[in-house]
Design a protein around this nucleic acid. Structure first.
Length: 476
RNA sequence: GUCGGUGUAGUUCAAUGGUAGAACGAGGGACUCAUAAGCCCUAGACAGUGGUCCGAUUCCACUCAUCGACACCA
């Protein structure tokens, strides 16, 4: 028998300088839905996520909180991993960039790039603001001065860093984009990265002096330096599937699909691809770039008090309701706006009044009027739904399900089986049976999006019994 | 500043070279299987100014608004 087709998807690894926010929740639920859909289609699936734990920000944050860096990242990693339970995620791999296995692979990857002549040492000029006691980047400066301390001159500090020969890969990257018009979706993001690469590439630094910042992976053969976070973190995408030791596993899963927020476009679709080329490995299969989530027309921020925390939402509405919201009420590729009011409206309109109520009314009629549960035909999932999910368009797939819910509601209204049963029982039963089958199909289509609700609906139809507890009680 | 995206009812979105559809929300109605849910009805919109065209919301130009990219924050 032929081996099952394989499907590898990974999220970005969120940086642990803060707690999980709704944007990452949306990203990982999006990935989870695609992973579950792939399984539904018979693929063998590898689904990876994890945490990015190195670098100066994490190092400083731990110092601020007065705990060891290790303890700090352990706590954060636990917190991120608990999303699995909260959001009912099906990832089978949770990598931490502080794992020894990952560190070893990162070292190996560095050596592979070095062997190809792409890593070299050069003086790196750092702009340092004495006021902030921090290094500053060009984008943080206003008129060449620190935005917070414009009266102070910036100090220029030179230090030796390792650099990656990014510039060497300009043409290869452009070729990659040219040959794969869907390498980055949506298309507008591909244009963006193309324009960036066309403008010319500068080599980027990939190490930091250990004396200043020890929290990182050691550079092979140089105890003075640690790798810069980007370089180390990106390697996770291949070490979790076996690179470099388990070649067979690696080849089975790679290349994979990477899903990321729009702030990660460059790292995922240019830097990482160049790194792969340098290490003489195949480039990724596809990069899916998501939009951001705002609230009330503004970025979520602590100072504005408009931050929506995924754990709180789950507590209030339940796992599947939050998954529903992230799948359908949030657009996958554009920015979305989310407020607590909208969440509640959507919950009542579509889950309580829509799906929940429809399930109750059909199954009540079934329970009282059918002798036994209906026969369920195989493969009732329609093509429209499949097509949408193949394009990663979760929203359109979900819209289709809710369209079907509306259709069933109006069938009940027009045919009135609850009335007909008193005058023409045989006819009424045919209608009710049809409703049950179609409800079951809705259950099937819900599988990737609302896994728990999907099971509840399917088993209720099979048991020919109305659920004892409402699927989604109305919120007042 | 350069490049790119977007701008349609209160809100979120759709469609179309021949004067716009839906969902939520709002108001009203008849029903009752159901979570006072569902169904039906009503009100409500093409950012602005020019141009091409018999005719533009749809194509073009400009203006305004908004979002993003223009590299070492991940």
């Amino acid at each position: 028998m032929a081996e099952k087709k394989s499907f590898y998807i990974t999220t970005t690894l969120p940086y642990v300088n803060s707690d999980p926010h709704i944007g990452f929740a949306a990203e990982i639920v999006h990935a989870d839905i695609l992973a579950r859909y792939a399984r539904l289609c018979g693929y063998e699936v590898f689904f990876n996520t994890g945490t990015d734990e190195h670098g100066i920000k994490v190092y400083r944050k731990a110092q601020e909180e007065g705990i060891s860096t290790q303890k700090y990242v352990d706590e954060k990693a636990t917190h991120f991993e608990s999303l699995k339970l909260s959001l009912n995620l099906s990832f089978n791999s949770f990598v931490r960039t502080t794992d020894p296995k990952h560190k070893k692979a990162a070292g190996g990857f560095w050596e592979a790039c070095a062997a190809n002549g792409d890593i070299y040492k050069k003086a790196y000029k750092i702009k340092y603001c004495v006021g902030c006691e921090l290094e500053k980047t060009e984008s943080e400066l206003i008129n060449g001065r620190c935005a917070i301390h414009p009266n102070l001159e910036l100090e220029i500090i030179e230090e030796e860093n390792y650099f990656f020969r990014f510039s060497k890969y300009q043409k290869a990257l452009l070729d990659l984009y040219e040959k794969n018009p869907e390498f980055v979706v949506p298309a507008t993001r591909l244009h963006e990265i193309k324009a960036f690469v066309e403008r010319g590439l500068e080599d980027f630094s990939i190490s930091r002096l250990k004396s200043k910042m020890p929290w990182g992976v050691d550079v092979p053969g140089d105890s003075e330096h640690v790798m810069y976070v980007w370089f180390d973190a990106l390697v996770n995408y291949i070490d979790v599937i076996g690179w470099p030791e388990d070649k067979k596993s690696f080849e089975k899963w790679w290349p994979g699909i990477q899903i990321a927020g729009k702030d990660n476009l460059r790292q995922q679709s240019a830097m990482w691809q160049a790194m792969l080329m340098s290490a003489k490995l195949p480039t990724s299969k596809q990069i899916i770039i998501r939009g951001f989530i705002n609230s009330g027309g503004q970025k979520m921020s602590k100072s504005l008090g408009n931050v929506i925390n995924p754990f709180d939402l789950v507590k209030e509405y339940g796992t599947d309701a939050v998954r529903y919201f992230l799948a359908r009420e949030v657009t996958p590729f554009e920015d979305s706006d989310v407020t607590l009011e909208r969440i509640k409206e959507a919950y009542n309109a579509n889950l309580a009044n829509g799906l929940g109520n429809l399930t109750s009314r059909i199954l009540k009629m079934a329970e009282t009027n059918l002798e036994k549960a209906v026969e369920i035909p195989e493969n009732t999932i329609p093509e429209v739904y499949k097509k949408a999910l193949e394009k990663y368009d979760i929203k359109t797939a979900a819209d289709y399900i809710w369209q079907e819910i509306a259709v069933l509601d109006s069938i009940i209204q027009e045919e009135e089986p609850f009335k007909l049963v008193k005058t023409n029982k045989a006819e009424a039963i045919i209608i009710i049976e049809d409703l049950c089958v179609r409800l079951y199909t809705i259950g099937r289509m819900l599988n990737p999006i609302l896994p728990e609700t999907s099971e509840k609906i399917k088993s209720a139809v099979k048991a020919n019994k109305m659920p004892e507890v409402s699927l989604f009680p109305r919120k007042e």
